[in-house]
Design a protein around this nucleic acid. Sequence first.
RNA 1: AGAGGAGUGGCAGAGUGGUCGAUUGCGGCGGUCUUGAAAACCGUUGUACCGCGAGGUACCGGGGGUUCGAAUCCCUCCUCCUCUGCCA
Length: 423
Amino acid sequence: MLLVNTIRENFEQVLEGLQKRNFPHAEAALHQVLELDKKRKETQTERDNLQAESNSIAKEIGMLMKSGKKEEAEKIKSRTSEIKSQVKLLEDAYNNIEEDLKQILYTLPNVPHYSVPKGKSADDNEIVLEHGSIPELHADKLPHWELIKKYDIIDFDLGVKIAGAGFPVYKGRGARLQRALINFFLDEAMKAGYIEVQPPILVNEDSGYGTGQLPDKEGQMYEATADKLYLIPTAEVPITNMYRDVILNEAEFPIKNVGYTPCFRREAGSWGAHVRGLNRLHQFDKVEIVQIVHPDRSYDALEDMSSYVQGLLQKLELPYRVLRLCGGDMGFTSALTYDMEVYSAAQERWLEVSSVSNFETYQANRLKLRFKGEDKKTQLAHTLNGSALALPRIVASILENNQTEDGIKMPKVLVPYLGFDMI
RNA sequence: AGAGGAGUGGCAGAGUGGUCGAUUGCGGCGGUCUUGAAAACCGUUGUACCGCGAGGUACCGGGGGUUCGAAUCCCUCCUCCUCUGCCA
């Protein structure tokens, strides 16, 4: 969440940022934050003073008791009841104010980076670059949902039977392709200096709040209600939360983690024309990269991650483009996001396969993720993450783009992992 | 899952109602000594909030309670250890 200090010191800038996101009533909300914070401080001062008085009386009584002056001690005791009830009142007031403040702050999205374009929807995103050429296929080309049937590599009906729509069963060479991609992505990340982790795929409430899935987006996560746990929508949640309530040493930067996990998304109400086949699922596989860095370095790290992801797409020989998301299309917690989209030649559409974001201190503030610098001061770190990569749409575009009359050609880099070069 | 035990500062480990944010040791940082280093000695060493500052407040697993006063007593939750049970 946003820092109150930032709102106070850079009011105009924050306001502009929220407006870029088309956040309604931004100015009123920001004023309310400042007002509540002011009230919070006043209440704290008042409460602390009374508490100090109460503490000193308690000490006095302690001394009197020790020196055996019980009657005097009893006399003083009567003075405390009034202070005590007042402290209680102020304490409650303080807690209420703080809670109200937190509630408003939770509703405020991150302030976009200055380079983020204005805009309302995906149509306003800025195309940063395009790479690769779009393959020309025969007129009888098939979309991937036909291809998977033709070659019997992914079975949606079977998934429906055992779980429901959006839970495909990968079979034979389809399953092998999944495993190959996961291994390829993990190996590449390790070469790039990321430390692999295998986190839990169920997380508690604190973790949900830490990375910003809660309180807003409960509906997007599957819940194990009996144990108050959530199935992760992305490995970002467990991996970033490893660093919740942590004070790092500046020397430990940059922290680079990679993890493969299944991801679960309820995607309630979002089924429609463009979500056939692998385009949108309730369960899918993803390899995620996370970086925790010094605030001065976070935009370099973002560019780093962006070119790393592009490198993967190049190795997979997929045509792609990079978008800088506009204010209206950006995720709630992000300051700057690049989306990578691959071209799926039979659907004749661009498909998002990665989203790389810098959250600056937005997540770190919730996570209490700090570091101690050379000057011995603790300050918030910057967090970043990106998909590297999400599998289903990669699979969709590999299948569609590489289809031939003799079968589907596999990208060269995957052949050692697959043990075959054609499906 | 049942019975018992335990959770204290970076780590180890005292403290069972009063002046304890907390003895001590190790580690870390600074210094003295030394050509340099080690050893020894001296000092220093948590986080957050409020305050220009002096200083104040809170935190001894989390939350709640008793008390003038809680690390210490009570309730509850979490975690870990031991034994029993179950299980990949």
